[in-house]
């Protein structure tokens, strides 16, 4: 069998970075699927991109600005209308430490 592109531990680490909890079964399944997909992605290795600059934008737009003029904000009711938890006009987040 070929050396896997991504190990189970790496999948765990990446899921941690992405703040997505995975179950044990998912870790197994994802590791398998991700390896298959990454194996396919590595097809790009064979493309010769020597001296080729990356395309960040397909447009050649530059210098798009807005003026420093105040626009109306949302009302607080609108701003918080979708928040699952709020308190005294604040959003309520879990504890930090």
């Amino acid at each position: 069998m070929k050396k896997p592109r991504i190990s189970r531990r790496e999948v765990e680490h990446i899921a941690w970075l992405a703040h997505i909890e995975l179950t044990e079964e998912e870790k197994t399944l994802f590791t398998e699927q991700l390896n298959e997909i990454l194996e396919y992605f590595r097809k790009i290795d064979s493309a010769d991109t020597e001296g080729v600059s990356p395309t960040y934008h397909v447009l050649d737009l530059v210098n798009v600005y807005r003026e420093d003029e105040v626009q109306e904000s949302l009302t607080r009711e609108e701003a918080l209308s979708n928040a699952p938890k709020k308190e005294r006009g604040f959003l309520k987040a879990p504890r930090i430490v």
């Binding site: 790009i44 290795d45 493309a47 991109t49 990356p54 395309t55």
Partner: peptide, 11 residues
Amino acid sequence: YYLKALKIRTL
């Protein structure tokens, strides 16, 4: 991955 893909985009 990412950078290489962007270069391929140029190609």
